[in-house]
Design a protein around this nucleic acid. Structure first.
Lengths: 339, 339
DNA sequence: AACGTTCTTGTAAACGTTTACAGTCCAGTT
DNA sequence: AACTGGACTGTAAACGTTTACAAGAACGTT
């Protein structure tokens, strides 16, 4: 039935009494006489022959692998992206190679030169930070790359983006519509791409609404994590008394929620909390957290499809997709009549 | 500086005026004269030469890739395992290929025959369910495999296991030591490997403690998810009034926590809640959830190291590692004086 | 001065496929 | 009977490396 030795085309060919070309043809469904087809099929089955992926890759110039690089494999947003990308690319017959680019910006560079070794046919990259050298490396790549997030200046690549400004507006408008006016903001690090974008969105939304910007009502966690969020939210509530807290992240939102309610504030009656990304954990907070979905899975799906398309037609026009955010209202922001 | 065409050994050799063998030797650090070394180095740099991974793999018979197969890329436990495995194997110079084996048991089989195509040098497999055919396929594999979880009967493979019985005992003893006697259990599906093991652990712990088994105090969620947990916990609290709820999972635990507190029960005063796996989310529940760490990251690390070791010495003895569980006590189970 | 060492380099084969090309065979034409 | 064409099959060359082997150079030894 199955065996422990590896068997090759020539073994199958010998056993079937044909040339290796014929074996290859039969196994790839190219035309062959019934007699040869039969002999090859049974020989291959008897030997438990499985074609070698590496040899095939070398010959046809494709690895059937797609690389995915995210900053932190553990982050819930990336997790949902990974899951989505994984299903899309495996459905298309590709394997997924996972690279965690960590916090070291050099990792991204290393990855890109690594990509030029040809271990994958294409790359989906979601950079947290965008150092200058990344741009030059991106431009020098021989392989298709699609970016989740914004591309460095001067780089022409397929990319898919969230609309942070619209997302923040959704959050701010939602609580402002309830008559809340002291809308605070718990951000992540401002020197990251999402951190900068969300800060910009928050300020724009405030301005559009005619609400004052108040420096005391803004804090930045030193990370997009729960721990960092606890510290930031504590700081925030020491320096102001908001009636709504908008957060750059669901983890930060849960932190804010817990700090607030442990501090004796009632959520949502005294203060509303709104998160962002609408990850699974938004639902399991108590009360469940209203969250702006920036379309992580949609972005992931779009990115995967963009890459697959470019692998099909390498010379197609560069495409840019923007995913519109949506608001999922839950108990943390609905006074009185909880849904 | 960098270029868009792929350059090969022969291009570098021509430019340096030496043979491809010399280029290969220089680039691999084998002895060569200073003159040749210099010429090759500069030629390679000028051309932006990067060796082709596929060709190298074909020649040396290694892909420098390790495959990881988990049931659900989205599950927090698997996420932390992934993260750990990712760091260990990349530190050792391997890339990580991710396969989600989903719920379809055929996926695992497909993966194993796929592995025989040689796209990876080894596999780390964490099967949720273990159909009979999996055993025969595992035995037939030409490549090193390490199992996270228990191995099918008759299969000799490196593996690393959690000690569910000890873990459950930790949970049950913890609440029983507080004088709680009506200790309920929210499990996941019993037809899964962890589901069965945890159920067994719960019953064993109860017995060891001299506590009665009560069918009404046990429910199984149809999934290890929060949603399923809500339904199961609701059912549980309709059919009994426990003073402690032990859960097979942190997600299930948070569900139980929320159902209980929304039902007017005070946690931990009226009822203690204990989770399992000690994932990140245990900490962000309110109150934070006491959880038994079954050592997911330790298991992941051990599995990765086992695989690396076997890749080094293929004929080493089969090794089996058991990770001891630990209990992290948090607010959800500590009456009165919260830590 | 001839010889053995040692060090360096080139030639060529191999890894396991795919595929262009040429050859064979056979049927159908003229 | 010779010829054309089609359908099939085999030969051999790639893909880009690594590496066994042999050949050559440089050197010290007798």
């Amino acid at each position: 039935m199955a065996q422990a030795k590896k068997s090759t085309l020539v073994l199958v060919a010998e056993r079937a009494g044909v040339s290796i070309a014929s074996v290859s043809r039969v196994l790839n469904g190219l035309p062959a006489s019934d007699a040869v087809t039969d002999r090859v099929r049974t020989a291959a089955a008897e030997l438990g022959y499985v074609p070698d992926a590496t040899a095939r890759s070398l010959k046809v110039g494709r690895t059937e692998q797609i690389a995915l690089a995210v900053a932190d494999v553990g982050n819930p947003v990336y997790v949902s992206m990974m899951r989505e990308i994984s299903t899309v690319v495996t459905a298309a017959g590709y394997r997924l190679v996972l690279s965690s680019t960590g916090s070291d910006p050099r990792d991204q560079i290393d990855l890109l030169v690594g990509l030029n070794r040809g271990f994958a046919d294409g790359l989906i990259l979601s950079p947290l930070r965008v150092p200058a050298e990344l741009g030059t490396q991106l431009r020098a790549s021989r392989f298709p790359i699609v970016i989740i997030g914004s591309v460095p200046p001067g780089v022409e690549l397929d990319n898919v983006r969230a609309d942070s400004v619209a997302g923040m507006a959704l959050a701010v408008d939602h609580v402002a519509d309830q008559g809340r006016e002291r809308i605070a903001f718990v951000n992540g690090p401002v020197d990251t791409v999402p951190g900068a974008a969300r800060r910009n969105g928050y300020l724009t939304a405030l301005r559009a609404r005619g609400l004052p910007e108040n420096a005391d009502a803004q804090v930045s966690a030193k990370d997009f994590t729960y721990r960092a969020g606890l510290a930031a939210a504590t700081r925030l509530l020491e320096q102001c008394t908001p009636d709504a807290i908008v957060c750059a992240n669901d983890l930060l939102a849960i932190a804010a929620l817990n700090v607030a309610s442990r501090g004796g504030l009632r959520v949502p009656d005294d203060v509303a909390v709104v998160g962002m990304d609408d990850t699974d954990i938004a639902e399991l907070a108590n009360p469940a957290i209203t969250s702006v979905d920036l379309g992580a899975t949609k972005r992931a799906k779009a990115a995967a499809e963009l890459l697959l398309r470019r692998l099909d037609e390498p010379d197609a026009d560069v495409q840019q997709v923007v995913i519109e955010p949506t608001l999922t209202v839950r108990a943390s922001s609905t006074r009185g009549d909880t849904p």
